[in-house]
């Protein structure tokens, strides 16, 4: 699976187990949210930058994962500046940026398969509540498999509407699209049952 956000690499962070990285991320998030001292925050942020540098991902990825937030950051900064002043606003920006980039760092350095395996392991704790970890893993992988299929059905529904003289508006095409998806769902379920997937 190569369509995820994972960036291949051989750094220590790439080689660390996903469970360790997830626990580290959670610990980092707790530290960040408990800290209100600017110096301490800056130290945490510098630490994160060092780890980022060691992962050999390039700084462009750090910038682009933060620019996705730019509008919301501008709004937050303005509100916070008006109510709490420059210091509070800077602290907030630093916290949010550090939190988001730390989480992005875990995703950049963890293969989706490994993440799935870890999730499956974590979910085995819920098995006693009737939640089968294999079913969860199957469903997640199935979603990824179905995305291109759904996109194709959608394209065909829009093209069919164009052929009938309709416009390019995707909303009217949504109805035949979903109806066809529901029919395919029934076929897929039967196919799965026929292959012994009776009781997940």
């Amino acid at each position: 699976m190569t369509i995820g956000v994972y960036v291949p690499g051989a750094s220590a962070l790439h080689r660390a187990s996903p469970g360790v990285k997830l626990i580290g991320l959670a610990a980092f998030a707790v530290c960040l949210s408990l800290t209100t001292n600017l110096a301490l925050l800056a130290a945490l942020a510098v630490g994160l930058l060092l780890v980022w540098g060691s992962a050999d991902l390039g700084w462009q990825r750090l910038i682009s994962s933060l620019t996705l937030l730019k509008w919301i950051l501008v709004v937050m900064f303005v509100f916070q500046f008006l109510s709490g002043g420059l210091l509070a606003a800077t602290e907030l920006m630093l916290t949010i940026c550090a939190l988001v980039s730390a989480a992005a760092l875990v995703s950049f350095t963890t293969r989706t398969d490994d993440m799935l395996e870890t999730l499956q392991y974590a979910f085995s704790a819920f098995a006693r509540f009737g939640l089968n970890p294999n079913t969860v893993a199957f469903a997640l992988v199935f979603v990824i498999r179905l995305v291109p299929f759904v996109a194709t059905v959608g394209r065909e529904a829009i093209e069919a509407r164009l052929a009938r003289g309709g416009g390019r508006n995707p909303i009217p095409a949504l109805v035949p699209m979903v109806i066809r998806l529901m029919r395919e769902t029934d076929t897929l379920s039967e196919a799965l049952v026929a292959r012994g997937f009776a009781r997940p």
């Binding site: 996705l68 949010i96 939190l99 980039s101 950049f108």
Partner: peptide, 20 residues
């Protein structure tokens, strides 16, 4: 969360769950 960029705008990964 597994790391597939499926949110509109091509966003994905754990980062989106930590923003405001």
């Amino acid at each position: 969360a597994l790391g597939f960029p499926l949110l509109s705008g091509g966003r994905g990964g754990l980062g989106v769950f930590f923003g405001p």
